[in-house]
């Protein structure tokens, strides 16, 4: 039986509470991992390890948080903004992410705001259904 989105969210919430030392009510679907929840780079790997354990799936970090490879490509970044080509590549490699507000002002410094609780839930929903 497929696991429901609510159940995925609850598990993700538990992972984030443990990994980042948060209170349960701090974790909301729209919360950004770095801005709202205070995650640092090592926490992203911690989160990946914990998700793998909770959901019994293998999660390559670059699938869930793939921006590193994209940002190092000069064709994708120009003057501190993602190019059209970069945005297309992002949309392709991050189908679990909501780009609607980022696309209007694709400042690379705003990339971290794309990593939200919802994006993790979306990713797992697709991964577990596959």
């Amino acid at each position: 039986m497929a696991i429901s989105r609510e159940k995925i969210f609850e598990e993700v919430k538990e992972v984030l509470v443990d990994a980042l030392g948060l209170d349960e009510d701090e974790v909301q679907p729209k919360s950004t991992l770095m801005g709202d929840l205070g995650a640092e780079s090592i926490d992203f790997l911690d989160i990946v390890f914990r998700l793998e354990k909770s959901f019994s799936v293998k999660i390559p970090r670059e699938e869930l948080f793939p921006t590193e490879g994209l940002m190092n490509n000069p064709e994708y970044v120009k003057d501190g903004k993602m190019t059209q080509k970069g945005l297309e590549a992002m949309a392709k490699s991050m189908p679990h992410t909501d780009f609607s507000s980022f696309a209007a002002n694709p400042d690379v410094n705003k990339i971290q705001d794309l990593f939200t609780v919802d994006s993790i839930v979306n990713f797992l929903e697709a991964k577990l259904a596959a």
Binding site: I42, L45, D46, V48, F49, E52, K53, R61
Partner: peptide, 10 residues
């Protein structure tokens, strides 16, 4: 060892 990846381990 709990987990190991290219970048990190726990």
């Amino acid at each position: 060892v709990e987990s190991i990846a290219d970048e990190a381990a726990s």
